[in-house]
Design a protein around this nucleic acid. Sequence first.
DNA 1: ATAGGGTTAG
Length: 583
Amino acid sequence: MNCTRRIGLRYYSTASSPSTSHFNQRITSLQNASGPTKVADALQLFDEMLQRQPPPNIIQLNQLITVIVKMKQYSTALSLFKRVNMMGIPTNLYAINISINCHCRLDQVAYGFALLATILKQGHQPDLATYNTLIHGLVLADRVFEAVELFKKLLREKVCEPDQIMYGTVINGLCKVGHTSKALELLRFMESGSCKPGVAQYNAVIDSLCKDRMVDHALELFTKMTEKGVLADVITYSSLIHGLCNFGRETEAAKMLIDMEEEGVSPSVDTFNILVNAFCKQGSVKDAELAVQAMVRRGLNPDVITYSALIDGYCLRGEIDEAEKVLDGMVERDIVPDIITYNSLINGYCKKKQIDKARHLFQDIQDKGLIPDVVTYSSMLQGLYDSGNPAAASELFNEMQAKGLAPNICTYRILLHGMCKNSQCSDALALFRSLESKELMEDVGLYNILIDGYSKCGKPNEAMDLFDELCLKGLKPNVRAYTVMISVYCQGGLFGKANDLLRKMEDNGCLPDSVMYNVIVQELLKKSKRQEAENFLEEMINRGFMPDSTTFTMVLHLIPNVGKESRMRTIIQKLTTVERKEI
DNA sequence: ATAGGGTTAG
């Protein structure tokens, strides 16, 4: 028997011409290759293989076409299959599955389904990979409902026994469209069945829960998963750390990092970047720098995201010098700053009223070949308006549109605010009226800017009209909208109306905040409505809000130097006692 | 031996 087998092997190896192994070698080296000529080299090899007589087997061709697919050249891959068919080389199920995948990636799910018929015609049966590719195709086409229906049908009619990949595809699809609870249901279903979920399926749901702001649910699921003996990996921990950070729970996030290392899971650069970024956004660049040191100690190299986060952190604090130092440091380490890195700096310069430096950098990065994005332009626009140069701003806005960059809601906020601040309220309103997106036309924030702008331009009636319009549209004014309107009423001496609105606002379930109280007290004091101001001052303190420095200064001026009973003094004394207690 | 899912970060 041994003898027969040996003869068989021998026969096999002599039958394959020398070029078979030669092609195998070239396919293998292409699979591992990277570089700009990879696709061209693969096509060249494909041509050579098709010219060979007898024609190469379908396995090698599948391998080669997979190289093209991995490079996301789906239409090229499909055209190669077409040539295989034209040569009369028989394909197999693998080949058709690859084709289905290509069609799905090209947003042609229908073609994918049509290939089911080809599979049957050729005497094959679709397998798990076939169905999973189609389910994934539906997910890619944002047809998650249909994907779930197909999955259920396969299950109901016992067409196939889903594996972890198929469950995972459906779970990911559900998470993608925000149906986290359905995804969780499916995960539970897996737990109760024979195909148990792995860490990837748990990760999808944990991450989705975090994005739904349900971090504690995510943590619970994480615990349950561990209890079931499924080991968390770096992605599980990174998702949780990210979720915690988004909730301002950086301390717990940092503890999670320690936990993961104790469990033997090594954090990646990305894991650290989440923390670095969170610390920076929260204003504590010091902690961020410590996190960077910690990652370096573990042999991880900070990347462009790490450095950009630090730069952004320093810029947010107005410490541009420090930000510039970080930039120099990263360049020294051969890490190339990208547009996001520079956006932080440009924004920093603009906020610091160093518009010339911002303009210079804006030009500089373009000379370097970087393309400014919406954020770059928006920052520049804000800087130009803030420096009182609306003409340059509108020129830049035109340039941005000429380049085909679509302004986003932030851009419009900056534009409207900038115009109003530069006494161009009617231009701002005209721009707002020209907006075509429903989302923008119904943005309370944009209304607030216009209302505030008109009021500051001394046109309270227009401001009130806009507020009415906002309510008539059925939009819910937020606390900022009410604040602006109340201050409009106060400035016009219409205190009764201001009071009515305040009541109406609380009826609508919108509670006054610190800013609102400060505005009211300040406006009342400006109009010498001392008693009303005292009432509001007391009310705000009772609700736990502090007068800001402007309010405080105004109030202090009203306290008589010596003797005399003063309600203001009592209030302020009470306030300082409270403060002392807190310290 | 060749095919299908995923994944965290600005």
